[in-house]
């Protein structure tokens, strides 16, 4: 079980959190202007790298707030956490 550093509460057990998938996949500004392929890309396509991935988490059983984390999917190391709307930190 991961130890996840909630940016508001500090490190807590993974069981307190809800996973929210890849971060920085914004809801399109004007969905109606997208063709089916573009919309499907927003709806169904997500990155699945072996390595760092920016993803969304919600501290469901704690402060109930969403945040972003950069997690290495191969090692589970959480390399950074940051608040929604903030840019993805540059990971060296």
């Amino acid at each position: 079980m991961l130890l996840i550093p909630c940016p508001w509460c500090g490190s807590r057990d993974e069981a307190e959190f809800h996973y929210g998938g890849q971060a920085h996949v914004p809801y399109p500004e004007d969905p109606a202007s997208l063709d089916d392929t573009q919309w499907a890309r927003y709806l169904f396509f997500r990155a699945n790298p072996k390595g760092p991935l920016a993803e969304r988490w919600c501290h469901t059983d704690g402060c109930r707030r969403w945040f972003n984390a950069v997690r290495n999917t191969a090692t589970h190391d959480i390399l950074a956490v940051y608040k929604p709307g903030e840019p993805r930190p540059v990971i060296a």
Binding site: P26, R65, W66, P84
Partner: peptide, 13 residues
Amino acid sequence: LEWMEEWLQTEWP
């Protein structure tokens, strides 16, 4: 409630 919070916090702050 989680659904509402998700949109409010992540898309429409």
